[in-house]
């Protein structure tokens, strides 16, 4: 197979970027999208060019490091997968493929297709945890948790923090990410003591990082590789509202 690739190149955070067009030859249908880029990079290197920088690590869809917008869709549009799990057989031979980084003010481009997602870490630091130190935890079975609750918490906890939700949202809102963490922890009884302060703190932190508001377009959930449902945003909204009415501050 061969492809025409239109790839975003940007030499540094403060630099302006542009698209460059590459021809990728000898691509096998079995290759993953990122392996196709590996091959392209080897071809570029040998011909004396600068290879394309992009993030990836586990390459099995769980670490959340890979972050490419393929033909306008974060992770490339295959349902429930990250771009590292996308294979070239999903594309037509000879097709032109546009590859861009996540776009959002809170995720500045560092180089080429690499973006800075540390804003997500700071959101978690603002309240995405249960304040328990190591040691002194009661026996794990001392607190029964219904299967439904555990499953609901798990569905939200499956978030890999890749940022596709922000990349897909026309407002660059981080509500699906934040909602997932709040739903995970606030659904479980262990998370109840900090339920409201967690919701309020996380919302304040999201705004501070420069993410937009949710206008319920549903684009985030549509591209989420872990198919986190929009319900988590509803849960965050509710816990936030109740928190504010109770006078909880960040």
């Amino acid at each position: 197979m061969k492809f025409t690739l239109k790839i975003w190149r940007q030499s540094g955070p403060e630099k302006s970027g542009h698209f460059e067009t590459y021809e990728a030859h000898d691509i096998q249908a079995e290759m993953s999208f990122l392996e196709m880029l590996d091959v392209l990079n080897e071809q570029i290197t040998i011909s004396g060019g600068q290879p394309v920088n992009f993030d990836s690590d586990c390459r099995e869809g769980i670490c959340g490091m890979c972050s490419l917008v393929v033909n306008g869709i974060p992770h490339g549009g295959q349902k429930g997968t990250t771009v590292c799990q996308l294979h070239m057989r999903s594309f037509a031979d000879g097709q032109t493929i546009t590859i861009e980084p996540w776009r959002a003010k809170a995720f500045p481009v560092l180089k080429d297709l690499v973006v800075d997602r540390s804003a997500f870490d700071r959101i978690i630091q603002s309240g995405g945890y249960i304040s328990v130190n190591t040691g002194g935890a009661p026996d794990a079975n001392a607190l029964p948790i219904s299967k439904d609750q555990a499953e609901m918490a798990f569905d939200a906890a499956a978030c890999i923090g890749c940022g596709a939700c922000v990349a897909a949202c026309k407002n660059s809102s981080a509500m699906l990410f934040a909602g997932a963490k709040v739903t995970h922890l606030n659904t479980l009884p262990q998370g109840h003591p900090e339920k409201y302060s967690r919701a309020v703190s996380i919302v304040v932190s999201m705004d501070k990082e420069g993410f937009g508001a949710c206008t319920v377009t549903g684009a985030c959930a549509a591209v989420c590789p872990k198919e986190i449902p929009l319900d988590v945003i509803s849960k965050l909204n509710r816990d936030y509202a109740v928190g504010i009415l109770k006078g909880v501050s960040a």
Partner: peptide, 14 residues
């Protein structure tokens, strides 16, 4: 403001 200055080349409505 959150969206930033650059938009996607061929945005999808997802």
């Amino acid at each position: 403001r959150a969206r930033g200055a650059t938009s996607y080349d061929n945005p999808s409505h997802n």
